[in-house]
Design a protein around this nucleic acid. Structure first.
Length: 265
DNA sequence: GTAAACCTGGCA
DNA sequence: TGCCAGGTTTAC
């Protein structure tokens, strides 16, 4: 469940267990995640304290007392379990276990193993380095997006999935935000930028729509099913007031996109 | 640019 | 059995 709102929720839940706490024992049950955890991963972590736990895009970032940084990504199916007592046994896909000095045990579970972790001494070559702006930060403006979209022929859908353009959007919230902005996912990104490089009005609408979509998702309780306007709603009525359209599913660069062909242009 | 690859599990 | 899944990277 991992786009920006879900990762943010994960970070907020982990904070009480991890911030200010020390890694007492780290157990790696499977080293081969999306990347291979280095041999000394556990020993380098043990004894260090988490100064702060934060989110950057879809990454969780722990700043450590050792000056190193622990970066974590949930992939498609990763999640953290917080247990107040050390579990007697582990589930099939429990890959990494943090025994914290706070007394809680944090278990990283990931059936598909698309998630991973990195431990960096220096701040170079971190996966978070190339990320675009945080969509909920002030730096995420129509002007900033216009720079990224200028002469970009890619459809809006794939342009917004590009984490270098904006960090944290995924397949669900791109569909949701584009519907809210009444923009077609197939439209070329560059059509929202004027020849001078200035943002067109649709781009301002899009920036607002992205913010609202993410803020709504953050305010809600965890996803429960019928929470989306268009995502996974092929064949259903468009939820926009007065629109008689039907939600369509198309495939763009190998991934499902849901939209209303009537009100999204 | 898009397709395939990395994995497992759930569902028609 | 085959297809689909909220991600990212690598390879045509």
């Amino acid at each position: 469940m991992p786009e920006l709102p879900e990762v943010e929720r994960e970070v907020r839940q982990l904070r009480p267990a991890m911030e200010g706490a020390r890694f007492e024992r780290v157990v790696i049950r499977r080293r081969r995640l999306r990347t291979l955890l280095p041999l000394r991963f556990a020993s380098r972590l043990e004894g260090t304290t988490v100064r702060a736990l934060r989110r950057r895009g879809k990454y969780l970032v722990a700043d450590l007392s050792s000056e190193a940084t622990l970066v974590m990504h949930l992939g498609m199916s990763g999640s953290f379990d917080i247990r107040s007592t050390a579990p007697a046994s582990f589930a099939k896909h429990d890959h990494v276990i943090f025994h914290m000095s706070s007394g809680t045990t944090v278990v990283f579970n990931d059936p598909r193993r698309f998630g991973s972790m990195w431990l960096h001494d220096d701040h170079s070559r971190t996966p978070i380095l190339g990320l675009g702006p945080e969509p909920l930060d002030e730096a995420f403006t129509a002007e900033a997006l216009a720079t990224a979209f200028r002469r970009k022929r890619a459809p809006l859908k794939s342009a917004l999935l590009d984490q270098r353009v904006v960090a944290g959007l995924g397949n669900i919230y791109v569909s949701e935000a584009l519907h809210r902005a009444r923009l077609s996912p197939a439209r070329a990104a560059e059509t929202l930028v004027s020849p001078s490089g200035a943002p067109r009005s649709g781009l301002r609408t899009l920036v607002r729509a992205i913010r609202e979509t993410l803020n709504d998702a953050l305010a809600d309780r965890p996803r429960g099913g019928d929470d989306f306007r268009v995502y996974d709603r092929e064949g259903r009525r468009c939820p926009r007031r007065g629109c008689r359209g039907t939600i369509k599913r198309i495939v763009q660069s190998g991934r499902s996109t849901f939209f209303c062909p009537v009100c999204q242009r």
